[in-house]
Amino acid sequence: METHIYKKERTIKIGTLLKASLRDIYKSRFLSRQLAERDIKAQYRQSYLGILWAFIMPLTTALVWIILNSSGTIKLSDTGIPYPVYAFSGTLIWSIIVASINSPIQNTMASKGILTKINFPKEALIISGIYKLLFDSFIKVILLVILIFAFGVGFHWSLLLLPMALLGAIIFGTTIGLFLTPLGLLYKDISKLITFGMQFLMYATPVVYAIPPSGIMKTIMVWNPITPIVLTARDLIVGFSPQYLWYFIIVVAVCIPLLFLALVIYRISIPIIVERLSA
């Protein structure tokens, strides 16, 4: 029979905690799927536009930039591909990253009611969040593919590697989001800060315009760890050889151990947070 001991932890063993965390993720695989299924179904059952909402934000952002560019209001440097494809692909990938950062906090917060009443593997909330991100991303990719053909970019075999780039985006976002979750559950300021910060960060990432050839902005954009994610994904879509591939691989490789660390921290934090939520 399984034995649980609850007491004030004297020592933290990261290895043991990580193992327990991964075991719970495996054990709760049905729960994660069920929660994701529940949320997706509920979301679309109560709306007529349904799936449209998944990409209406990136679509409008892109449209604004396309209009600004085509009307000559602003002058953007040449991107090498049709600007609408550039802008759409940028905002779509960007929206996936933003959604991934918000996902852990949102999902945990949404389950506040159960967290304070029932003991279940909390990791399932994170995993269900990832499922939902994958679902949303899948829809966005379909739209993107339609656009590529519409603008005559055509099919490239590299498009098949796009899921890898998107997975990288989700891993990156989830890692950041998961680190912010414990604090974000205690203070609402964190979610606001994320929304606020990401708005600015978008302009320091080649989302709607290319990296300028020189200047301070170039340095910032080249070092920005989101840049390789956006660029690699876009290069794969339009069939260029990815320029920032190495940086992309490094970012993802750094994120994976950090993601595990964040999972451990999340596991330690939940009881402390539940206490404050229900107190």
């Binding site: 649980h4 001991i5 609850y6 007491k7 004030k8 932890e9 967290l115 304070t116 009443k117 029932i118 003991n119 009881p271 402390i272 539940v274 206490e275 229900s278």
Partner: peptide, 10 residues
Amino acid sequence: GLINPDEGKV
């Protein structure tokens, strides 16, 4: 097991 005790053991 929802919250941890400050003292003692379960």
